[in-house]
């Protein structure tokens, strides 16, 4: 039997479909149309909200396959892996796209190994090769210094992850029809050597990923106590605070604030970089921001190459004046 169809791995939390699923649909719609095939959303969970499943159809999926069991309520590597492998065996998808989330980044490599599939992480561009129909997966490589286009010529399925917030979520269209298949996960697939004991939420971190405005602190901030200045600007702009790797390595802000290849990717409406030089590894996490403003003393700093508006000056000179001139609070 041939492998056919584009699939996305939708994610749920407490039975509610998460935003990443809709972002993946944006990618999936384009790939399925180029490949001339159907788009299916796979979701693993328990009692997933029916309206949310219909929402996946409304946003472009032709079919939703929900695999459900109490043990699948939140991500556990072994049962999720076995259930996904079973779905691959039964449905034989040609392409599977997942979010580069804590779940996707863990589940996809487990499944790819077991399914003998090719997997490419953190793709920024996905396309279909004319003629062969292969999935072309483009991602930053070698610390983001170059881009590499990767394909999986022989093995199926072709698997890839894409960063959250790297595309807009697909919009719902009313009157779309599709099939919703709810499957009960077989008991023998559900054993787990890992179990959930507890959870402590971190609201600030979530805020950064979803923020529409972000003020980012780079090494130019010089001292941990100076971060306060950036916070004041962030308050005034109604923005979240992010940091470069240098700042996190020095302990001036915690790791969840880190933006870049080894941290978070953000796509806010407004990015304001204060004393961030724009190392390639940082650029990889922010250059898709809609509007980029940079303040840095070094006129040659890379950040100015991706910025829309730059001021070559010390942030300690610029920010106080800016705080005065900005309207509001």
């Amino acid at each position: 039997m041939q492998h056919e169809g584009v699939w996305i791995l939708a994610e749920q939390s407490h039975g509610r479909v998460q935003r990443i699923s809709h972002e993946l649909l944006t990618r999936g719609i384009e790939l399925a149309s180029k490949r001339g095939t159907t788009l299916t959303a796979l979701i693993l969970g328990n009692n997933v909200n029916q309206d949310d499943l219909q929402g996946l159809i409304d946003r472009g999926a032709d079919r939703v396959v929900a695999v459900e069991a109490p043990q699948l309520e939140s991500f556990l590597p072994q049962p999720y892996m076995r259930c996904m492998l079973k779905v691959i065996e039964d449905y034989r998808p040609e392409i599977i796209i997942a979010g580069a989330t804590s779940t996707g980044r863990t589940l996809m490599p487990l499944v790819a190994i077991k399914a003998n599939a090719g997997l490419t992480a953190d793709c920024t561009v996905l396309d279909i090769e004319e003629g062969s129909g292969n999935l072309l997966q483009t991602r930053p490589a070698i610390g983001g210094n170059i881009m590499a286009t990767i394909k999986t010529p022989n093995n199926r399925p072709q698997m890839a992850t894409v960063r959250p917030h790297s595309t807009r979520p697909a919009e719902p269209a009313s009157g779309r029809e599709g099939q919703i298949v709810r499957l009960k996960a077989p008991q023998e697939l559900l054993a787990s050597d890992v179990k959930h004991v507890g959870f402590s939420p971190n609201v600030e971190e979530q805020a950064l990923s979803d923020a529409q405005r972000v003020v980012v602190v780079g090494r130019g901030i010089k001292k941990g106590e100076n971060v306060e200045l950036a916070r004041r600007l962030a308050d005034k702009l109604d923005a979240a605070v992010g940091a470069t790797r240098d700042v996190v390595d020095r302990g001036w802000l915690s790791y969840p604030h880190q933006i870049g290849l080894s941290g978070k990717t953000i796509t806010p409406q407004l990015y304001v970089g204060l004393g961030a030089s724009g190392s390639i590894q940082h650029l990889a996490g922010m250059q898709t921001s809609e509007v980029i403003v940079a303040v840095n003393t070094d006129p040659e700093a890379q950040i100015f190459k991706v910025a829309d508006f730059g001021i070559v000056a010390s942030l300690f000179d610029v920010v106080p004046v800016l705080l005065e001139k900005l309207p509001g609070k």
Binding site: N116, I146, A148, T149, I311
Partner: peptide, 20 residues
């Protein structure tokens, strides 16, 4: 399973209004 088929430089094209 995977093959690198092309390597290229990322293009960064924004026109920065720069004040000095």
């Amino acid at each position: 399973p995977t093959r690198v088929v092309k390597i290229f430089r990322p293009s960064v094209a924004r026109k920065c209004v720069k004040h000095v």
